[in-house]
């Protein structure tokens, strides 16, 4: 199967005067429709890697291909379109826009592209809120929800454009394990239903061990990259 994301020779160096190399010659590809997790100690470079995969950050050297298309020569606007249409993000620190309700947040990526929501997309947003089990609070402002409660609408928002890829940077241990499991089940369901490629940074063993593939980053290098054995 084709690759959803393909990284080759990725190096990332922060700073100019004092240079810190955070990623070293990373070659990494994720197949379409696969369910992957990235693990590694805090500070190992996972988020940096994910931001590069999501075209939010540019590597110091190396190339990023999204759906077989080179991104290094794209303009900011082109990249914005790529992110809007093909990538759904779940961020480590940021969930919903506080000025908007949960449902409006879910619709936001669609509005960015089309300005006006159609009846269909409203319906779809409702369905997604249902899917993530948050229909009841869909008209609540984001400020009325805790960080944990915002995660599921954030997932619905990541899904609204039916992106080919979902990139999730899960916060280290601020969810109880039941919630984690429910979220995991939803993610798996989406993966099966919409053939979405998932790449999830996680500190949670329960999520990681259920992926098809686990990549461990250590000190900016891939230390181990294993796929789930077929029984």
């Amino acid at each position: 199967m084709a690759n959803a994301i393909e990284l080759s020779g990725i190096n990332k160096i922060y700073g100019t005067a004092i240079q810190t190399q955070v990623l070293f010659d990373i070659d990494l590809a994720f197949e379409e429709q696969s369910f992957n997790s990235i693990i590694g100690q805090s500070g190992s470079g996972k988020s940096t890697l994910m931001n590069i995969m999501g075209t939010l950050d540019r590597p110091t050297s190396g190339t990023v291909m999204i759906g077989g298309i080179q991104t290094s020569n794209m303009t900011k606007n082109d990249l914005a379109v790529v992110r809007n249409e093909t990538i759904g993000f779940i961020f480590q620190f940021h969930y919903l826009l506080p000025e908007f309700t949960a449902l409006e947040n879910v619709l936001m990526p669609y509005l960015i592209k089309h300005n006006k929501p159609t009846a269909e997309v409203r319906e779809r947003a409702d369905e997604l809120m249902e899917l993530v089990g948050r229909s009841k609070v869909k008209n609540n402002k984001a400020t009325e929800m805790s960080g944990g409660q915002q995660q599921r609408p954030a997932l619905a928002r990541a899904l609204i454009m039916t992106p080919r890829i979902i990139l999730a940077d899960a916060p280290p241990g601020n969810l109880d394990s039941d919630t984690t499991e429910i979220i995991y089940d939803i993610l798996r369901q989406v993966n099966g239903q919409f053939k979405t490629t998932f790449i999830i940074i996680t500190h949670d063993r329960k999520i990681a061990e259920k992926a098809d593939r686990i990549v461990e980053i250590r000190d900016g290098r891939i230390s181990l990259d294993v796929t789930r054995p077929m029984i």
Partner: peptide, 9 residues
């Protein structure tokens, strides 16, 4: 966040 979601400059 909006830019990450693809809002243009």
């Amino acid at each position: 966040i909006l830019k990450a979601m693809g809002i243009k400059s």
